[in-house]
Amino acid sequence: MRRACLVLLASIYWTLGCAAVKFDLPAVTPANIENSKRCLSQYVPKDTLVFARVNVGPGYNQRVDIEIVDDAEVPNVYTKKKGISGEITNAFDTRADAEISICFKNTLPDGFHEAPEYSRPIEVNFNVGAEAVDFETLAKKEKLGPLELELRKLETVVKEIVSELTYLKRREARMRDTNENIYLYCY
């Protein structure tokens, strides 16, 4: 239930364009690690730039692991790191139309017992598509003026919209074909 609420909350924040999602990740013993896994997910189309910045706060004798993976037929693992601390960044292009999940685990070493004081603050900043592009660096590199930079941003957003509409059109056609086949089969 908590996981579902966390995913829903993250989806709302991403939809509203929030800068980051922050939460405390409780530490558990290795025996309970799968039950304490926390994931944030978002659907991302194929060949889309994704930029993830994760900041893991301090925590005594706790090991935080991160995994960024999609739910394609053959799952693609974009990042898998153990024992992260501080800030890490990761940028990648998606390989399939799929839901990208960023999952965290916080493990206590042997000899420690689970307690409320064992948790670490996590901050996740997840940008997709045009949001993930660093336009300031691009402007300096290509020596773009303010107007040219704004046009480049708009061009990127328009390309995303066209891509999304093309995807929706293909999906609608597949659903229509399925519906017609079911209708013909039933009657």
Results as ranks from 00 to 15, higher is better:
residue 185 Y to N: 15
residue 159 K to I: 05
residue 107 T to M: 10
residue 67 E to P: 02
residue 125 N to R: 06
residue 72 A to S: 04
residue 64 V to P: 07
residue 14 W to P: 07
residue 121 P to C: 15
residue 108 L to C: 00
residue 167 Y to W: 10
residue 169 K to D: 09
residue 152 R to G: 01
residue 32 N to F: 02
residue 33 I to M: 05
residue 42 Q to A: 10
residue 168 L to R: 14
residue 10 A to D: 04
residue 80 K to H: 14
residue 37 K to M: 12
residue 24 D to M: 11
residue 126 F to S: 02
residue 73 E to C: 05
residue 157 V to S: 08
residue 92 F to N: 06
residue 128 V to F: 03
residue 105 K to R: 12
residue 125 N to C: 01
residue 140 K to G: 03
residue 12 I to Y: 07
residue 26 P to S: 03
residue 86 G to F: 01
residue 164 E to R: 13
residue 99 E to W: 01
residue 144 L to K: 05
residue 95 R to I: 10
residue 173 A to V: 10
residue 174 R to E: 13
residue 105 K to Y: 06
residue 24 D to F: 04
residue 177 D to V: 13
residue 101 S to E: 09
residue 164 E to Y: 00
residue 148 E to A: 14
residue 45 P to M: 07
residue 121 P to F: 00
residue 66 I to R: 09
residue 87 E to T: 15
residue 173 A to M: 11
residue 29 T to S: 13
residue 28 V to G: 01
residue 11 S to N: 15
residue 133 V to H: 02
residue 120 R to N: 06
residue 23 F to N: 04
residue 144 L to W: 01
residue 178 T to Q: 12
residue 1 M to W: 08
residue 100 I to Y: 00
residue 52 A to C: 05
residue 100 I to P: 01
residue 158 V to F: 05
residue 153 K to L: 05
residue 22 K to E: 05
residue 113 H to F: 13
residue 78 Y to I: 00
residue 9 L to N: 12
residue 64 V to N: 10
residue 172 E to M: 11
residue 162 V to N: 07
residue 124 V to N: 00
residue 5 C to N: 13
residue 101 S to A: 09
residue 46 K to D: 03
residue 166 T to N: 11
residue 111 G to K: 05
residue 179 N to L: 15
residue 144 L to C: 12
residue 2 R to Q: 08
residue 32 N to R: 01
residue 31 A to D: 14
residue 70 D to Y: 00
residue 35 N to H: 10
residue 16 L to Q: 10
residue 38 R to M: 06
residue 170 R to H: 13
residue 65 D to A: 09
residue 160 E to G: 12
residue 74 V to A: 14
residue 32 N to C: 03
residue 103 C to K: 03
residue 135 F to S: 10
residue 137 T to Y: 12
residue 111 G to W: 02
residue 38 R to V: 06
